[in-house]
Every structure is written in C-alpha cells, then in structure tokens.
C-alpha cells in the first residue's frame, strides 16, 4: 500500500516536472519562432578574424 503510494507520488511529480518544463519553454518564447533555430544551428562559427568575439552570437536574449 505505502509502496504504491510512494510510486504514485514519484510518477506524478516526474510528470509535473515535465509539465513545468513545458510551461517554462512556452513562456520563455521558445516556440515563437520555429524557423530560425533550425537554420541557426547549422551556421559555422568561424573564428572571428578581425573584430568581435563569436561567442556573443549564441548568447540568448532575455
């Protein structure tokens, strides 16, 4: 009995974790633009020769 109770709590809380992750990802705007991320990840990160540092390209905004 108590084992099943524990298992229930565990399974629901794992599911709740995923729900939380989903809500967070929607809230942070990850589904607002579905076109650019798949293109963006294919760009080569050339080591910047003259100016700037290329890591900034990946920095997420907000």
């Amino acid at each position: 009995m108590s084992v099943i109770f524990l298992l229930l709590i565990a399974s629901v809380s794992v599911a709740a974790l995923f729900l939380g992750a989903f809500l967070w990802s929607v809230k942070s705007g990850q589904y607002d633009d579905e076109t650019s991320p798949p293109i963006r990840m294919l760009f080569d990160q050339k080591p910047a020769s003259s100016s700037g540092n290329s890591s900034e390209t990946n920095s997420t905004q907000q």
Partner: peptide
C-alpha cells in the same frame, strides 16, 4: 545575427524569422 562584427557597439542581435 553577426551585426557585432560590423559594429562592435552592437552587443547582440537576434532574429525572429516568423
């Protein structure tokens, strides 16, 4: 998204394609 290479005063730029 590479605007900062043209002008270093640009900290970052991010495109929303849609």
């Amino acid at each position: 998204e590479n605007l900062h290479r043209l002008n270093s005063d640009v900290v970052s730029s991010r495109v929303n394609f849609t």
